[in-house]
């Protein structure tokens, strides 16, 4: 692989064990500017665990994650200013309106947006006119779209998305694909997981998480 781009996120020999099961070991990932990385794998192969390790929510059992060459737990402020993570939980409060939900998500990132910017983002994700509707009145697909609007406004160079296609309809999927392409064209990077294949009209790499061979597991036990 050429190292033409500036390296953004990289991992060194990541190991993840969950409930005495080795999910992956010695995982090295490198992600440069304007790169899209898809994490593939069956259910329970550790995709979500990997993403939570990449964004620092979960501690890797071994190895480390580097942001621009520095351990993310040491450069937390810079890393978290530049990265947005969207997990499979909705992060949406039913009692808040669409606009309030977006604002409170942006507030955690110390980012403020003008009402006009929010309107534009909502129009783009197909939620124009829903600004003042309490989110509990929205469908789950619409709630996912609130998160897409948040992504557009978050001003982050790295997106980490866990199963971003969940609950989205065909047009929602197309919208997200276009957002990823636009983000990449603007120099940003994306890491996402999916179990149904996503066809992006741009260059994309993928990493497969699979079942670790039994022999490896035995060796591990011997090491311990």
């Amino acid at each position: 692989m050429t190292m033409a781009h500036n390296m953004m996120l990289s991992t060194e020999k990541l190991v993840c064990v969950r409930d005495d099961r080795l999910l992956f070991r010695d995982l090295d990932i490198e992600l440069g500017e304007a790169e899209v990385l898809q994490i593939e794998g069956a259910n329970g192969s550790g995709k979500t665990s990997l993403l939570r390790i990449l964004c620092g929510l979960r501690q890797a059992d071994e190895g480390r994650v580097l942001w621009q060459g520095e351990d993310i737990h040491r450069s937390r402020d810079e890393y978290y200013s530049a990265m947005v993570y969207i997990g499979h939980l909705p992060c949406i409060k039913g009692d808040l309106t669409t606009e309030e939900n977006i604002r409170s998500l942006l507030d955690t990132r110390s980012r403020s947006a003008a009402a006009k910017e929010i309107d534009e983002a909502l129009n783009k994700v197909g939620l124009g006119g829903y600004e003042d509707v309490p989110s509990k009145a929205l469908s789950s697909g619409q709630r996912r779209r609130i998160l897409l609007a948040f992504l557009l406004l978050a001003d982050a160079s790295l997106w980490i998305l866990d199963e971003p296609l969940t609950a989205l309809d065909v047009r929602g999927v197309a919208l997200l694909e276009q957002m990823i392409v636009d983000h990449r064209d603007a120099g940003g990077s994306v890491i996402f997981t999916t179990h149904h294949g996503m066809q992006l009209p741009c260059e994309m790499r993928s990493v497969s998480l699979g079942v670790v061979p039994r022999a490896d597991l035995d060796m591990d036990d011997a090491d311990v």
Partner: peptide, 22 residues
């Protein structure tokens, strides 16, 4: 509890602001 259940707590922990303050 609510923040944990709906994932908002993750977002708070990924905030560039000190978690202690939040």
């Amino acid at each position: 509890k609510q923040d944990y259940d709906d994932g908002s707590l993750d977002q708070l922990m990924l905030s560039p602001n000190p978690l202690v303050l939040l």
